[in-house]
Structures are given as structure tokens and as C-alpha cells.
């Protein structure tokens, strides 16, 4: 919360900072420098190396000296020759951002209802939270074998019509064309099925975060709102939602990151046609025994990095504009 401190108090804080003694300062520098160094070493240097590798050709088998500079050739390859992989993957990631945002809203609603201490709220809480303890890869395995399987899955047992191929049917539910692409983009049926499995986990995850947040909301605020004659919606919209701001920030970040880094559940379903996401394109090009395509995989990785950085810049700028 950006409450403005009185000028005197701020000056006091500044003076206090200057009065740190020598050992305090050493500690302070160490505590900043060590994580910063780790962060640089483990995050930004590999990220920069990925960018560098994306302009090269290398098969990860030959020695480093065989790395060959190819300028933007890898980008030409992924944007023109493998455009049938790249653009559907980007579209699927985009769908995930939208979808997980909707799921986050549902999670918030559930949390709000459960916070009302309805009868059995703890049981509901446990049920919704249960999937969160599973990794998305495990969620993928479970849904693939017990729910989606065409011949012996639960969904087709209760489905009255012809069995549906939930995993393999890449037919599009809707399609649209972009002027620069010679093929349509759209949401495949199997990706839509996969969205349901992701929602199963994501809703519970977000619910728990909001539950924690709601517990921290001062009850007197709610009471004051009630006394002032707010109805349920007004009280939520005007009083509770604003006081959940720190949680909202975290939830937005988590939702977008989950959507962009999606990989494990698609991989667990064996990447059927129609479900490609950027994460699977990167790993498919990089993993493998004899023939890693490091340059192409790195180029996919850079596309993902640019999308993430774009979001971060927008988010940080927005955050500072509002708090300034």
C-alpha cells in the first residue's frame, strides 16, 4: 500500500539508514550481492546464452568450436517453415492466459463463498484443494488414463453418444484466419479437454491463496460496510476486493506464468496434434540423442522469453504508474 509518509518521517528513515555501522553495511551488501549474483548466474546468464545460441547452428554433439553463426536463419525457419507449429503454439498459450484468468476468477469466487463459513466449508476446501498437491504432469497422467481414454475412460462411459477421442481429436472447435498466415488458427477439441484438466488444478490453487487473503481482511471493514448499508456485491466490490490487492498481484503473476510456461501436462498427454505450446516446441527441438537442434530450440525459447518480458515490462510499468 502506497500510503504517503509524512515528510519528516521519511527524512527520519533516511537518516537512520545512514547511521548503519560498518558490519551492518557489510551484511547488507552481502545479502543483496549474493542473491543477485545467484540470480544473474542461474537466470540471466543462461537466458542471454539462449539468445546468443538462437543465432547459431549447433547439434550439441560436436565441440563448442563447431558452433556456427547463422544470423537470423533460425528465426526465419521457425516463423516461415515451422509456422504451422509456432503460431498454433502461441495461440494455445494465449488461450491459456485467458482461460486461467477465468479460472482465477472462479477460484476467487469459491474462496469468497467458503470464507462465509458455510456448513461443511472445510470439506469443500479439501476437495477443491486436493488436485493442487499434484504436479501438472501427474494431473496429465491421471486424466489421460482414467478420464480421457477413448476406450475405457470415465468421460466416454458417461457420454451417451459415439465415443469421443478426447486426447487425439485435433479438429478445431472454431477457426479464424490471420492475414499473414496461409492456414487458420483455432482451438482444437483436445486442447479444450486439456483446459478442463488444468482448471481442475488451477482453481483450487487460486482459491487457497484468496482464502488466506480473506482471512487477513479486517472484519471491522466488513461490519462497517454492512452498517453503511452495502449489499453483498457492493461490499465485495468496494471494500473486500480492494483490500485483497496484494493477493491479486500475486495471482495475476502466477496465472500468466502458468499459462506461458505450460509444458508438463501437454507432455504427459504425449503432445497430441493440436495441443502444441511453446514449451513443447522448445523441448522437442533440444532434447534427443543424436540430433539436438540447439539453434532452433533456442529461437523458440527466445520467443517465449520475449512474451514473458513483454508481460513483465507491462506489469511493472503499470504497477509504478498506479502507485506513483
Amino acid at each position: 500500500m502506497a500510503t504517503r509518509l509524512p515528510a519528516a518521517k521519511r527524512r527520519g528513515a533516511a537518516r537512520k539508514k545512514l547511521s548503519l555501522n560498518r558490519s551492518d553495511r557489510i551484511w547488507l551488501v552481502a545479502m543483496v550481492a549474493f542473491p543477485a549474483a545467484l540470480h544473474l548466474l542461474l537466470v540471466w546468464i543462461p537466458a542471454l546464452l539462449t539468445v546468443v545460441l538462437s543465432f547459431t547452428k549447433w547439434n550439441n554433439l560436436d565441440p563448442f568450436s563447431a558452433i556456427e553463426y547463422v544470423a537470423t536463419e533460425n528465426y526465419r525457419i521457425i516463423f516461415t517453415i515451422f509456422d504451422t507449429n509456432l503460431f498454433p503454439a502461441m495461440f494455445n498459450n494465449f488461450v491459456l492466459v485467458i482461460w486461467l484468468t477465468i479460472c482465477s476468477a472462479i477460484g476467487m469466487l469459491l474462496a469468497y463463498l467458503l470464507d462465509k463459513e458455510v456448513a461443511g466449508s472445510r470439506i469443500y476446501q479439501s476437495i477443491y484443494y486436493f488436485p493442487v498437491v499434484l504436479s501438472l504432469a501427474v494431473v496429465g497422467f491421471i486424466w489421460r488414463s482414467t478420464m480421457f481414454s477413448r476406450d475405457r475412460g470415465l468421460l466416454n462411459m458417461v457420454w451417451p453418444g459415439e465415443p469421443i477421442d478426447w486426447v487425439g481429436d485435433g479438429q478445431k472447435l472454431f477457426e479464424f484466419s490471420l492475414p499473414f498466415l496461409d492456414f487458420p488458427l483455432g482451438l482444437s477439441r483436445n486442447f479444450a479437454a486439456l483446459l478442463v484438466a488444468m482448471a481442475w488444478r488451477h482453481i483450487g490453487y487460486i482459491m487457497v491463496m484468496y482464502l488466506a487473503g480473506l482471512k487477513a481482511v479486517d472484519n471491522s471493514l466488513k461490519e462497517a460496510a454492512a452498517i453503511d448499508g452495502c449489499n453483498e456485491w457492493q461490499s465485495f466490490r468496494q471494500v473486500i476486493f480492494p483490500s485483497l490487492k496484494p493477493i491479486n498481484v500475486i495471482v495475476i503473476v502466477i496465472t500468466v506464468i502458468e499459462a506461458l510456461r505450460a509444458y508438463d501436462i501437454v507432455a504427459a498427454l504425449n503432445e497430441p496434434r493440436g495441443t502444441e505450446v511453446l514449451g513443447t516446441l522448445v523441448t522437442n527441438a533440444l532434447l534427443g540423442e543424436g540430433a539436438g537442434r540447439v539453434g532452433v530450440g533456442s529461437a523458440y525459447g527466445v520467443v517465449l522469453l520475449v512474451l514473458c518480458i513483454g508481460f513483465i515490462i507491462w506489469y511493472v510499468a503499470d504497477h509504478y504508474r498506479k502507485t506513483a
Binding site: F148, S149, R150, D151, R152, P163, D165, W166, V167, G168, D169, G170, N190, P272, R273
Partner: peptide, 15 residues
């Protein structure tokens, strides 16, 4: 068998 794309080799073997 219809819908080969989504079937595992084990499910097909069951048939």
C-alpha cells in the same frame, strides 16, 4: 479402429 490418434498401443492391444 476409429480415432487412432488418441489411442495408446496398450488400449489397441486390448481389442
Amino acid at each position: 479402429q476409429p480415432d487412432a490418434n488418441g489411442r495408446t498401443w496398450q488400449d489397441a492391444a486390448n481389442a
